[in-house]
Simulated assay, not measured.
Amino acid sequence: MSEWKVLLTDGLEENGQAILRQFATVDNHSGISAEELLEVVGNYDAMIVRGRTKVTPAVFEAGKNLKVVGRAGVGVDNIDLNAAKAKGVTVVNSPTATTIAVAELTMGLMLAVLREIPRADAGMKAGKWLKKEMEGGELWRKTLGIIGFGRIGSAVAQRASAFEMNVIAYDPLRTREEIEQRCGCSSTLDDLLEQSDIISIHTPLNDTTRNLINEDAFAKMKDGVYLICAARGGVVNEEALLAALESGKVAGAGLDVFAVEPPGVTPLVSHPRVVCTPHIGAQTVEAQVRAAEDIATEVLAALKGEPLRWKVA
């Protein structure tokens, strides 16, 4: 048995823990505070986090034995990659595990917003028969603009094609040929904003994408457009979105992510034409089992010095 020690800060499915325990001691400190993390991280060779734990420069400084940080999921905006590089710590994630879950939630948000499913359900539970008031829209033959056409964006495109939607996509990291192979038609960002009936966002949060969907972007969109975001909070400027909803420029929005999480009962969250979920894109049983296996094997590979599939830094 190796003397490697692995710290779990946000929990991990048992199948992943079992893989780790074959080669390392695993300590599950789910929910650990930032202060407690700084006190104990120096004892570990590896740490596996989800989105809650912030792996700051101070954490890397305190982690004197830290060799690898694993993110059970896709986004690594909660991990300071520059600090990781400065300390020689490898960062890996599990980007494929949650693709299906997020893509399916995206389609669910589209249907919920266009058909006002939450409002209809709330009415029924309140003893109201709102049939005459409920006249929604169809996905059929709508133009879906997908911003960010990686694994999740292209998975959404595949599912949208089953609804006979017209899919256009913008992704500066993909060639026209790649986008066309993934069930999309390549577009510039401006053309996508102008032509789409529904816009779905699937980009990471970074300096390039922060506030990408802002007041100027909304001004270019069709009147009555629908906006879906199950990517990262901060890509959509929430003040600009609220103003667009109030003006009628945006007919409805489906949001799984927010700039501040949890956001509380804000005017955007409580808006009658917004369907909100609490960042549950990856929260399926199947996705969590896949993510646990993927990140456990990747972290062990990093500790062993073996080739990595998903090295971020």
Results as ranks from 00 to 15, higher is better:
120 A>K: 12
93 N>F: 10
49 V>P: 13
74 V>N: 08
142 K>A: 02
68 V>F: 02
142 K>P: 00
60 F>M: 13
69 V>M: 03
74 V>K: 01
129 W>I: 10
74 V>T: 15
150 G>T: 01
138 E>D: 10
38 L>W: 01
113 V>F: 13
124 M>P: 09
96 T>Q: 15
90 T>E: 05
34 A>M: 14
79 I>M: 07
74 V>H: 08
133 E>K: 05
81 L>G: 00
85 K>L: 09
144 L>N: 06
123 G>T: 12
48 I>K: 09
111 L>G: 07
64 K>H: 10
128 K>H: 15
131 K>F: 01
140 W>Y: 14
23 F>M: 07
28 N>E: 00
121 D>M: 13
116 E>D: 14
132 K>A: 12
98 T>C: 14
51 G>F: 13
94 S>M: 05
121 D>Y: 13
116 E>Y: 12
64 K>P: 09
33 S>H: 07
132 K>I: 05
64 K>A: 11
37 L>N: 00
45 D>M: 10
154 S>M: 04
136 G>C: 00
95 P>L: 10
34 A>V: 09
76 V>K: 08
99 T>E: 08
125 K>Q: 11
67 K>V: 06
138 E>S: 05
58 A>R: 15
103 A>L: 08
70 G>S: 03
39 E>D: 15
73 G>V: 11
88 G>Y: 08
78 N>Y: 06
138 E>K: 08
152 I>N: 03
80 D>N: 07
119 R>Q: 14
153 G>Y: 02
123 G>D: 15
137 G>Y: 12
160 A>V: 00
107 M>R: 12
